[in-house]
Design a protein around this nucleic acid. Structure first.
Lengths: 181, 181
DNA sequence: TTGCAACAGTTTCAAACGAAACTAAAATGG
DNA sequence: CCATTTTAGTTTCGTTTGAAACTGTTGCAA
């Protein structure tokens, strides 16, 4: 792991003459850049959803995974949307209120509730998907075809690595833990 | 994997035989992927900050921009960190409590308060920057040198485009608004 | 001057969030 | 069988958030 970093931005700050600290510029820091980009994109899109259909991002995600007409449990939805079960539970409860979703107790396992979109939600799905894809295309229009392929690769690799790092126990202190996972 | 979008997932759902609706798979939807990746990364990193220094992401960002020893106003911080002024205001108030920041009223303009990190915060900065850079390297280790350069380019282009799209007024309804801004 | 718009930052309020505790329904297993 | 553990989902609690309203300050202009 070559810490090539270390752009000597000792710069012109007369106050601190610390020992060549590797300076960190937020605007070049990957987590920051991802956060800002993701926020910009999500926020823009969320306003579209909200204005037009009065739904939130969690609700939109649920509509997205159930939009094919499939039926699944809350747990499955949580997995597929990468939301946690609390978030899913709350979104579902809102959607029940606004008649976007239908819940019926499973017969074989009464813990699992089977969830299906109502026609109302399917109508939203039919309208929202083109909107979402259009927005996505508007964003990726900034890239060449090659670059889009690159983006796909990069995001996959980064996500895989980030997952890996997130899964490791507690790298902080002096915890000698087998990196089993 | 090139964006072969439009995988006709008419699939095997007997219920809906809609007119070849372009299906949307969240896992291939850019805003979703960005959101998940950004959350994974930020969350992992935030846990490091929190565990070791008891600071939140907004506080870390403020430390990052003031870490060079510079002094600036809350507004400037907001700009540089891409946070809004409310978030900055709250983070600053926490940091005042924990003696991480120093605030003195400007003499020329008493609206602007000049903010500087305390030695305590500078010490955190000195410790946290290597941690942050290490984590960043661990993530980008998943990429080749070329890919890292690509990533930089792609993120910049996407951000620029996303900003552009975010700035446009209200593309929703039939609002014929001069695109003045 | 005074009056008003623009600006810097804070506070308020309601919504959203995450972690942990909780309820209820299977699965396990002695 | 009954007791225990695991699983599915909900509720609670304290915190965080964002938008809008608000306070105080400056700049501008009649």
């Amino acid at each position: 792991m070559p810490p090539a970093r270390r752009s000597r931005t000792a710069s012109a700050n007369p106050a601190s003459e610390r020992t060549e600290l590797p300076a960190l510029h937020l605007t070049r820091f990957l987590p920051y850049r991802l956060s800002v980009l993701s926020n910009t994109v999500s926020h823009t899109l969320a306003k579209l959803y909200e204005k037009r259909f009065g739904i939130t991002i969690p609700e939109w995600r649920i509509i997205a995974v159930l939009g094919g007409g499939e039926t699944m449990s809350a747990g499955e939805i949580a997995q597929r949307t990468a939301m946690d079960k609390v978030q899913v539970s709350r979104a579902i409860s809102r959607m029940l209120d606004s008649a976007l979703i239908l819940r019926e107790s499973g017969d074989t396992d009464r813990r699992k509730a089977l969830l299906t979109l109502t026609p109302k939600a399917l109508a939203i799905y039919a309208e929202i998907v083109p909107m979402a894809l259009t927005y996505e295309e508007e964003v990726t229009d900034a890239l060449s075809i090659d670059e889009r392929a690159q983006l796909d690769t990069l995001l996959s690799k980064l996500q895989a690595r980030a997952d890996q790092l997130a899964a490791r126990p507690a790298p902080a202190g002096a915890q000698a833990e087998a990196a089993g996972e």
